[in-house]
Nucleic acid binder design. Structure first.
Length: 562
RNA sequence: UGGGGUGUAGCCAAGUGGUAAGGCACCUGCCUUUGGAGCAGGCAUUCCGUAGGUUCGAAUCCUCCCACCCCAGCCA
């Protein structure tokens, strides 16, 4: 019998194209690129593109370039450049020496623009932005030629040079390609190549006051870097003819090709930089790295492992159909990864004190607790057991329903790693709130099983009242209450769908002391509760944890069904 | 009434003329010192957007139609 070890490598239509290009000898080396505009933070949609581009370069022994598409200084900032690089590194991308900026090519692009003029393929237009818009035509009607379209080459050359030298104000003139104002593809109706922007650029400072447009920049930058497969999202499909036109008309050093795939949409969130920026600017969240944000930095702070994001990007596939992925698919990748790798600890979010009446006052002992049942190499740690402990309020019910096998009066439950205990008495305050549980333990059940072999179904976590540490816990839920936040009635917008309960802060949780020692950024499992990531806001005496994701709750499901 | 795309299960997604992969979700059991995890099974009655056609045979080829997405920035 033979078992075929098929390591599932991602397959998609782009890789199919690359396979063919390699097979036909069109290329011998594949070069891809990730081309962010530094005008915001990266989000999980970018992660999809990164995994696609970087994954291809890696799997085909090719080359991966990071290229900032920094052609619009009115929106771009160094802070964004820095954050993008940090996020890419965290995702495990290595671009080595291949860090590029479209702004590196400004001079070459300018020279090519001059060449376009010389070939009669570009002209300086004096029309205002409004006039250009009004003469562009509509989806069904052709546009009208600009009255400046037939200027002489000499005049165009002169004007363009004067645009560059700063003689004109913003908006006074633009350089346009001379293609076809009647083209059914609006992108071909004499697109603007250069606009005047008296604005300092994060990289080039005040060296330029004219900046190339995306269409005049992207393909040529690809060609300069000898990118073989320029992969972008669907909305650029209409730009491909223009992309190809520049490549054909200009003496570029290579002939790259553009391929488009569908961008990622996720339920319960928004995925446009514009909207994410708004959430940040309007203080709907606490910054770009708020753990509720779908940004890479938000997910990092939330405690999502980068490997889980890779796994997710692999699972969703790459295709051309618009789609919205269930958030639960992302959660599945997160849980799968964390289950295997996250160390386990005990903590209680809503502590109730339980006193083990028959456990001697002043006595204590240590139990060995496995750090990760999924990973024998994770080892064990000591947890301290004492007469007074805390358990979670959710693990006790005075009047439990059927099949509830946690603690209740007279019921027996197993304390994880320790003993069986039985609740003997419930102490309440004047208002009737439970303040303390009086319990008894079975000394025979040390380690969590008894010689008589009796079955105790329920196992709960606990923390010693002697060495438990107080902690702040931030419980997160979806940022929006509906699957598609953009679907709103007239007069409303996506912010009307913000979930008012997306963040709940618990300040008096109690956790094992070992958790206070964890490095910020570490994600651990709190047994039976979920995964929690130590936040950078932690203080030595007051650790702070972000709930990354809860554990699946089978009990909640059976409750819901009954 | 222009151009460019896309329609396979609740959500993603393979499939490229030979009789509908896989994952998520969901449902059943089993197991369990996390009601987690794991294991076993179920989950598109040949309706693969719809209607025709070609073919021994069609999700795959052809034709009509329908639905949805993108494009009229001196944004990317």
């Amino acid at each position: 019998m033979t078992t075929e070890e098929t390591v599932s490598k991602p397959s998609n239509f782009i890789r199919d194209i690359i396979d063919e290009d390699l097979k036909s000898g069109k290329y011998t080396k594949i070069i891809t690129r990730f081309p962010p505009e530094p005008n915001g933070y990266l989000h999980v949609g970018h992660a999809k593109s990164i995994c696609l581009n970087y994954g291809i370069a890696r799997d085909y022994n090719g080359e991966f370039h990071l290229r900032f598409d920094d052609t619009n200084p009115t929106k771009e900032e160094q802070e964004y450049i820095d954050s993008i690089k940090e996020d890419l590194k965290w995702l495990g991308c290595e671009w080595g020496e291949h860090e590029y900026y479209a702004s590196n090519y400004f001079q070459q692009l300018y020279d090519w623009a001059v060449l376009m003029i010389e070939k009669g393929l570009a002209y300086v237009d004096d029309q205002t932005a409004d006039e250009i818009r009004d003469t562009r035509g509509t989806l069904t009607e052709p546009g009208k030629n600009s009255p400046f379209r037939d200027r002489s080459i000499e005049e165009n050359l002169d004007l363009f040079k004067r645009m560059k030298s700063g003689e004109f104000k913003n908006g006074e003139k633009v350089l346009r390609a001379k293609i076809d104002m009647a083209s059914p593809n609006i992108n071909m109706r004499d697109p603007v190549l250069y606009r005047i922007l008296h604005e300092a650029h994060p990289r080039t400072g005040n060296a330029w006051c004219i900046y190339p447009m995306y269409d005049f920049t992207h393909g040529q930058s690809d060609a300069i870097e000898k990118i073989t497969h320029s992969i972008c999202t669907l909305e650029f499909q209409d730009h491909r003819p223009l992309y190809d036109w520049f490549i054909k008309v200009l003496p570029v050093p290579a002939e790259p090709h553009q391929y488009e795939f569908a961008r990622l949409n996720l339920t319960y969130t928004v995925m446009s930089k514009r909207k994410l920026l708004r959430l940040v600017k309007d203080n709907k969240v606490n910054g770009w790295d708020d753990p509720r944000m779908p940004t890479i930095s938000g997910m990092r702070r939330r405690g999502y492992p980068p490997e889980a994001l890779h796994d997710f990007c692999e699972r969703i596939g790459v295709a051309k159909a618009n789609s919205t992925v269930d958030f639960s698919l992302l959660e599945s990748s997160i849980r799968d990864n964390l289950n295997l790798h996250a160390p386990r600890f005990m903590g209680v979010i809503k502590p109730i004190k339980a006193v083990i009446e028959n456990y001697p006052v002043g006595q204590h002992e240590y139990f060995d607790a496995d750090n990760n049942p999924e990973d024998p190499n994770a080892g064990t740690r000591k947890v301290k057991f004492t007469r007074e402990i805390y358990i979670d309020a959710d693990d006790f019910m005075e009047n439990p329903p059927k099949k509830y096998f946690r603690l209740s009066p007279g019921a027996e439950v197993r304390l994880k790693h320790a003993y069986y205990i039985t609740c003997k008495e419930v102490i309440k305050d004047a208002q009737g709130n439970i303040t303390e549980l009086r319990c008894e333990y079975d000394p025979q059940s040390r380690g969590g099983s008894s010689p008589d072999g009796r079955r105790v179904k329920g196992t709960i976590q606990w923390v010693s009242a002697e060495d438990g540490v107080k902690a702040e816990i931030r419980l997160y839920d979806h940022l929006f209450t509906v699957e598609n936040p953009d679907k709103v009635e007239d007069g409303k917008d996506f912010t009307d769908n913000i979930n008012p309960d997306s963040l709940q802060v618990v300040t008096d949780a109690i956790v094992e002391p070992a958790l206070a020692e964890l490095e910020p950024g570490t994600t651990a499992q709190f047994i039976r509760l979920g995964y929690f990531c130590k936040d950078k806001d932690s203080k030595p005496d007051k650790p702070v944890f972000n709930r990354t994701i809860s554990l699946k709750d089978g009990w909640a499901k059976t409750l819901a069904k009954s």
